[in-house]
Nucleic acid binder design. Structure first.
Lengths: 323, 323
DNA sequence: AAATTATATGTAACCACTTACATAAATATT
DNA sequence: AATATTTATGTAAGTGGTTACATATAATTT
């Protein structure tokens, strides 16, 4: 009757399966301590063992080493102190820290349990060895892979990529004004600093961009605004791509590309011959994108005196060469 | 600073490690659902998924399939009912059972989440594949090995074997009387039935065995009595090994052997030429042990009429041939 | 030196289960 | 048919952690 869905689900229930196995093993260790009639709880082991290796340790130090939260260590320490296994005293060199150490009784308990711990380790090794697979290193490798990229980011990436079809690029609306400023502020502060010209433009897009014949676009993922880019029309008629920003957690999904395409499309619609931009060589990914879309570095500078400190590179795209 | 003791401890902290990894993965899945802004908790998944596969399921059926306790399923079901994902009704064919099934909303939610579950499964598969190890089958193999012999029994076996040096065999004391009766009753009932002669002997070892020149021995593991065996002296002077019993959880560690050696030693000390016993061919392990110690099946029967129904085999050991 | 920020600890409340117990219905035994 | 046992469910309380918040001390910045 019992189907064991957890087994059947394979990768989808991998976490549940690990949990189940872990609980099964921990329950057995608890049983062993109980049978031995030692006043010792299985969950005290990591702290007791740590304190046999290093005689004095603080709460957070233990928490860090054992992958527990500090309240957990604090509570365990209270139990162990009550059981007479450890005691504690303030660190004289740092009055915040409370140093835990084994009592004579704690050391005795550790000595008594040492052979049992050996038996547990040996038995576990046997069970793992019988499988013929290198499970311990496998688990370690899984952890390392997750260190590189967490499951959350992996799944989220898949979801976003799948739903990129729902990404729309819309024209300026007063409700989006705050995002234009916030998104650009974010990356400006991340890489450079916000200059006075930035402040003027970002705070008054209507007056400074739209009223002068430019446009501001916004990338929307569902209802969420995730990126922005502006087409600025200068007094000499020059069209500039500027203020392109994508929220960090949405970078890497081609949203910048979509914004760039939209700005270029708008410039083409206006029968512009060229689209200009000023950028920094520090922004390697952006420069790469611009080049892919036909922008070339030039020594010309059509922006006159109104440049930015960070913008040491000017690029131009010959729109009439494009389809 | 952080050493990660859990990693360093290898097999000894294997369970903790599994738990940590499981929690890491489950936490990420929770984050994903939260980000999706679906009214859905990660821990509801197994029930929701089960009910997409089989439309009506009872509480215990789910608990069995999901390796959860029935109160857990009951509580989860209550939450899910509140969230409008499932509803329930009594099974008309068995009024005890409450059958759960998805509501329209529950089905909708399952449909919405299906692609996300696929993403989770695919991402997990990728993480596992990147390790180059066959982890999923490895975990399955570990579970199967534990099915064969639990960690508890493995470790306990090691502890007992290591501490067999502390096994002592003592002579009869009134305080041990109850064990003589209890241990023998246990195996007699396990394999046969308690006969009137058993009852007489087991309830009055002093009068029936010791006062007639026999002896009763007890195996002690620390302070715990774990086995017993008697040397009975019959009216015709015949010495019989009888009423040997080892508590089930201490079988397989050589305690029977130690009791047998002690009884044979006592017989030799008394300069007996032969030691007799009556047994059943059903007790294969015991007969094997007797043979190993020099007992041979014989057609003689020195016990006269006072036999037992179960004892169809008589064995004898020529003590004078032994060292 | 004063103010701010970071770190270490403690405590309360919560969480997702579990165990232990109670009850009712079904099934097996006498 | 009456009684005992098993099974299904529900509920209370316990467990072993967590998160969230409060406080004290140390380190850094102004």
């Amino acid at each position: 009757m019992s189907v064991d869905l957890i087994n059947e689900l394979g990768e989808l229930a991998f976490a549940s399966r690990l949990k189940r196995l872990s609980e099964r093993l921990l329950k057995d260790v608890t049983r062993i301590y109980k049978e031995l009639e030692v006043d010792f709880e299985a969950r005290w082991f990591p702290i007791l063992y740590s304190l046999t290796l290093k005689t004095k340790m603080s709460i957070t130090e233990l928490a860090g080493n054992l992958s527990l939260t500090h309240p957990a260590v604090n509570q365990l320490a209270a139990e162990m102190e009550k059981a007479g296994l450890i005691n504690s005293a303030k660190d004289r060199r740092d009055e915040r820290r409370r140093l835990l150490q084994l009592t004579a009784n704690g050391k005795k308990t550790a000595k008594i349990l040492k052979p049992v711990w050996d038996d547990i380790a040996i038995s576990t090794r046997e069970v793992l060895k019988e499988t013929g697979k290198d499970i311990l290193n496998g688990i370690e490798a899984v952890e390392q892979n997750l260190d590189k990229k967490e499951m959350y980011d992996r799944v989220r990436g898949k979801i976003i990529r799948r739903e990129m079809a729902n990404l729309t690029v819309e024209r300026y609306r007063p409700a989006y004004k705050k995002y234009f400023r916030a998104f650009n502020y974010r990356w400006l502060r991340e890489y450079f600093k916000v200059e006075p010209s930035d402040e003027r433009l970002l705070s008054n897009p209507k007056r400074e961009i739209l009223d002068k014949g430019g446009e501001v676009f916004f990338a929307l993922f569902g209802k969420q605004v995730v990126g922005t880019a502006a087409l600025i029309k200068h007094e000499n008629g020059v069209l500039e791509l500027a203020k392109m920003a994508v929220e960090p957690e949405f970078r890497g999904f081609g949203i910048g590309k979509r914004l760039l395409e939209r700005v270029m499309g708008e410039a083409k619609r206006r029968k512009a011959e060229r689209l200009w931009l000023a950028t920094s060589p520090k922004l390697v990914a952006a420069v790469g994108l611009y080049e892919k879309y036909g922008f070339r570095t030039t020594s010309e500078n059509p922006f006159g005196g109104e440049g930015y400190e960070r913008c040491t590179v000017v690029m131009v795209c010959e729109l009439k060469d494009q389809p």
